[in-house]
Computed example of a mutant assay.
Amino acid sequence: MSASPFIAHLSLESSVGAELTQTRIRLLEAIAATGSISQAAKRVPLSYKAAWDAVDQINNLSAQPLVARSAGGSGGGGTRLTAYGQRVVAFYRALEQHYQTTLDQVAAGLDEASRTEVADFRQLLLNLNWRSSARNQFSGVVEALEQGDVESAVVLRLDDATRLTALVTRDSAAQLGLAPGRAVVALVKASAVLIGTDPGLRLSAQNLWWGEVERVHEGPINHEVVLALPAGRRVTATLTATSSRQLGLVPGLAACACFSSASVLLMSAS
């Protein structure tokens, strides 16, 4: 138990704001211990859907997948941490321990007034913490930038197999400092993603990602469909229950996620 009146809750952020929180680390540790996303969710605790959403976002925003899912068979499917995921968890815990030790040492030299100011400062940081309701968040690097008179087409490299095209105004591109090599996060609302299953599908959308249906969360009006992409990322789409049934969307089915470059919101660190 820490001697400090303050308990360290470590939250790591990349240059583009992606978070690795204690809740997510505990989820990763529970996955490693149980080999099951449902059992891991109960340990945290999180809902089954919230656990999968967290895993999808972690994998999407990471240079390498932290969590891998094995296909079902005679022994059933399972979920495991990759070697990279194990190293990330170990690094986080080591850093957290050092963080708490430092906090204990600083707190030991504070008077009551100073401790109040520290608590106020911590609350300010929490209030400034950025959040997004976008279901799809992808970390990438600008690979190409085509400047137009009014708009700019931006191509992001998410991984060796996945590219994402975004269309932003020329002014926005300048404000974000977009240039080849710049790290950014791309946000895409699930409602902006269309799903198709016809291999001969021809659409004008610049982003066409083929993958496999991994999960379908059924609601009375809409279905939320999660596609697993070849490189380990996930993309989520929201479509009507009628459309989902007409397409026959079930786990294991090959499908294409389609979305316009104009529906992508980009964010970069200042």
Rank of each mutant, 00 (worst) to 15 (best):
2 S>P: 04
6 F>R: 02
8 A>F: 04
9 H>T: 04
11 S>I: 07
11 S>A: 03
13 E>H: 15
19 E>P: 03
22 Q>L: 06
22 Q>H: 10
22 Q>A: 05
23 T>M: 14
23 T>D: 09
28 L>G: 04
28 L>R: 01
30 A>D: 04
31 I>L: 09
33 A>K: 07
37 I>C: 05
40 A>N: 01
43 R>Y: 00
47 S>G: 14
48 Y>M: 02
55 V>D: 08
55 V>H: 12
57 Q>P: 00
58 I>E: 11
59 N>M: 02
61 L>E: 12
62 S>F: 03
63 A>W: 07
63 A>Q: 13
65 P>L: 05
74 S>W: 08
74 S>N: 07
77 G>Y: 11
78 G>F: 06
79 T>P: 09
79 T>N: 07
81 L>P: 05
85 G>E: 08
87 R>S: 12
88 V>P: 15
90 A>M: 07
93 R>Q: 11
93 R>P: 07
94 A>Q: 11
97 Q>L: 05
98 H>V: 07
99 Y>V: 04
100 Q>E: 14
100 Q>N: 13
101 T>A: 06
108 A>S: 15
109 G>M: 10
110 L>Q: 15
110 L>A: 10
111 D>S: 11
112 E>A: 15
113 A>Q: 15
114 S>C: 02
120 D>R: 15
126 L>T: 13
126 L>E: 14
128 L>D: 10
131 R>Y: 13
131 R>S: 12
131 R>G: 12
132 S>N: 12
133 S>V: 05
133 S>Y: 03
136 N>C: 11
137 Q>H: 01
137 Q>G: 10
139 S>F: 12
141 V>G: 00
144 A>N: 07
147 Q>M: 13
148 G>D: 13
150 V>Q: 10
152 S>M: 08
155 V>C: 14
157 R>C: 09
158 L>T: 02
158 L>V: 03
160 D>I: 01
160 D>H: 08
162 T>R: 06
162 T>P: 10
165 T>H: 08
168 V>Q: 02
169 T>G: 11
171 D>G: 00
171 D>Y: 00
172 S>M: 05
173 A>M: 00
176 L>M: 06
177 G>A: 08
179 A>D: 08
179 A>M: 08
183 A>T: 09
184 V>T: 03
184 V>H: 06
185 V>M: 09
185 V>L: 14
187 L>R: 08
188 V>D: 00
189 K>Y: 02
192 A>I: 00
196 G>M: 05
200 G>V: 01
201 L>P: 13
204 S>V: 03
205 A>N: 14
205 A>E: 12
212 E>Y: 05
214 E>Q: 15
215 R>C: 03
217 H>S: 02
218 E>K: 04
221 I>G: 05
221 I>V: 14
222 N>A: 13
223 H>D: 06
226 V>H: 12
227 L>R: 10
232 G>W: 01
235 V>L: 13
236 T>Y: 00
240 T>Y: 07
241 A>I: 01
242 T>S: 03
249 L>E: 07
249 L>G: 08
257 A>N: 15
258 C>E: 06
262 A>M: 10
263 S>N: 09
264 V>P: 02
269 A>D: 07
270 S>A: 15
270 S>K: 14
